[in-house]
């Protein structure tokens, strides 16, 4: 089966600093694939490179079609949509303005009203706060908004960068539930996350990153059961 998203020999970084080295990965259609690793492992840089935001060498394909030469906005048009680390909502705009502006790609412009209704249906909390400035939302609500904004662009592959970062445990659980729900509905997801236990428990496949390279991979549950993984990542 052709991977929904694949990278081959991908290296990426900032100027002379190479942060991600020779990464090869594949995300099968309709699966949740996790990138786990400690701070500084290169997860965010890798997601940025896949989204076209970070300079990279190597091959990236979407459904077999090369993305390497495409700018970030062209990758969004192809369906590769990133929810950046730290949410990064447009703080000065209202919730509804944040969502409407996210239907930017020509491919989805005609579906803005329908997609907006779907996002509000999925996140009633956002509907209640549609006229509220996004910067005044709680962290969890901002994460919902960031995910909702990505859904406005009708992603074929959703890249989630640390979606539970700085969230209270109960809010983080809610975000994991949202991700699981999106996965259950058939959305292809590549998620970088530091909560190794919860992430591996729900991931169809996972890549372990350290020092900018992939050091191991396997089914999420299988990795979770390995003693060396438990020792290294869970302190058990």
């Amino acid at each position: 089966m052709t991977a929904a998203l694949a990278a081959t020999g991908l290296s990426a970084g900032y100027g002379a600093a190479v942060v991600v080295r020779d990464v090869t990965l594949a995300v099968a259609p309709g699966t949740l694939v996790a990138l786990v690793g400690s701070n500084g492992a290169g997860k965010s840089t890798l997601l940025g490179a896949l989204a076209g935001l970070v300079a990279a060498r190597g091959a990236v394909t979407l459904g077999g079609r090369p993305l390497d030469a495409l700018a970030p906005y062209e990758r969004v048009e192809q369906g590769v949509v990133l929810v950046p680390e730290g949410r990064q909502v447009f703080a000065g705009l209202t919730v509804e303005e944040n969502l409407r502006i996210a239907a930017f790609a020509p491919r989805v412009r005609g579906h803005a009203a329908r997609n907006l209704a779907r996002v509000f249906e999925r996140f009633p909390r956002l509907d209640e706060r549609r006229d509220q400035a996004a910067g005044t939302l709680s962290g969890g609500e901002q994460q919902m908004l960031a995910i909702g904004r990505a859904l406005m662009a009708e992603p074929s592959v959703l890249l989630l960068d640390e979606p539970t970062l700085s969230l209270a445990p109960i809010t983080a659980r809610a975000v994991f539930d949202i991700v699981a729900d999106l996965r259950a509905q058939g959305l292809t997801i590549l998620m970088a996350e530091q909560d190794v236990h919860r992430t591996l428990a729900m991931a169809d496949h996972a890549y372990l990153m350290a020092s900018g390279t992939i050091v191991d991979e396997g089914a999420g549950r299988a990795l979770l059961d390995r003693a060396d993984i438990k020792r290294a990542y869970l302190g058990l």
């Binding site: 935001l53 970030p72 969004v76 048009e77 950046p84 990064q88 447009f90 705009l93 930017f104 790609a105």
Partner: peptide, 25 residues
């Protein structure tokens, strides 16, 4: 216009504007 919406996104956060598909350059 779409140009105006894109420029507003740039004003709010340029990197995030790229992630929603604005050809910022």
């Amino acid at each position: 216009s779409r140009l105006g919406a894109g420029l507003v996104a740039v004003r709010e956060d340029e990197v995030t504007a790229e992630t929603i598909g604005v050809p910022i350059g």
